[in-house]
Amino acid sequence: MIRLEGPMAGRTVVVTGATGGIGRATALGLAALGARVAITGRDPERAETAAGEIRAAGGQADVFMADLSSQAEVRRLADELLRDLPRIDVLVNNVGGYWDTRHVTADGLERTFAVNHLAPFLLTNLLLDRLKYSSPARVVTVASNAQAMGRIDFDDLQHERSYSGSRAYNQSKLANVMFTYELARRLPATSVTANALHPGMVSTSFGAEDPSLIQRLVVPFVRPFMKRSGQGAVTPIHVASAPDLEPVSGRFFIESKPTRSSAQSYDEAAAARLWRVSADLVGLDAAA
């Protein structure tokens, strides 16, 4: 049974991609701590099922539908969240995906970069004033240790010259971490923190839409040794709710502990450039 009075009571948390896997477990866990949870997803039936699970346990859940591969959908989602939620105390950027072949979104962008990086970049910026109003608030971005193998190819961010699912994914996860660090640098005078994390190797349907050959051959053998969704949600729940992390910003967490990310993730010039390029791609003022 969810506790109506818990450490997150009175707080509102937005969790993107919360209709399954880590996102769903994160939403359920934060609701169990007393938070009002707003979940986003693409499939209405799965979203209502996830929300129903939270409500059946005594928690509060709101459902918002959006396909975050579309910038118009991200903007519509932000408008609806701002309309319906008087405060947003935590934004958990959980949505993400892996595609073995190159897909192009309605905006003409490579799908991995659009969903994994540009969607949270745009949504966070659109909700930032509400987060500041609700402060102390937190932005928690679910990245991956794949960031250590990533490289930001500014000459071919969309992988138009050559495409590799793993290379695109690794780049997007490095972008998550660099975005987090740059956001933290831009928010020193506010009470909004920004942190990223690696949830661990979790057994979900991640990548099932367009799996690689390695995923098809290897995952069935290693799945018994992978974390379950609830275990994968432990770190995002911790980073989103732990009282002692209220002043902590610009960090990367593994197993709920701050850890050094890759050396390139700390390249401030590259992060600032990525911010400018990203702002241009989504139609935002880079200086805002």
Rank of each mutant, 00 (worst) to 15 (best):
A286C: 04
T190A: 09
A196R: 03
A175S: 01
R185G: 12
R55W: 11
R102P: 02
Q171I: 04
L123H: 02
R111D: 01
D84W: 09
S241V: 10
I39F: 00
N93V: 09
G52L: 11
S164C: 02
L174Y: 09
D84M: 06
I254M: 10
A208Y: 00
A240I: 02
A27W: 08
G34C: 02
A194H: 09
N116I: 07
V192N: 11
R273S: 02
L197K: 03
S69Y: 00
L91G: 03
G52R: 10
R87E: 04
E110D: 07
A119W: 05
A240R: 13
K132D: 09
G283N: 11
T105C: 05
L174K: 03
D285E: 09
Y181N: 10
V13I: 15
T26L: 13
L118H: 11
A288R: 14
R273D: 01
D107H: 00
L122Y: 07
V177F: 09
S162H: 15
T190G: 07
A242K: 04
P258Q: 08
E45Q: 15
A25P: 10
W275S: 05
S203W: 04
G20K: 14
R216V: 08
V282Y: 14
V74D: 05
N170C: 12
D210S: 13
S70E: 13
V90K: 10
I254F: 07
D43F: 13
F121V: 00
I88H: 07
V95S: 14
V37D: 01
L82G: 02
L91S: 09
L127G: 11
R228Y: 04
A143P: 14
D79Q: 10
S249P: 06
A287C: 02
S172D: 08
A32Y: 01
L197W: 04
T101H: 14
D84Q: 13
L128E: 05
D107K: 02
V219W: 12
D155C: 03
T141V: 12
A269N: 08
R83V: 04
K173T: 08
A148S: 10
A31G: 05
A194I: 13
H117A: 04
R87W: 05
A242E: 15
R111H: 07
S135E: 15
V192G: 06
E110T: 08
L68M: 10
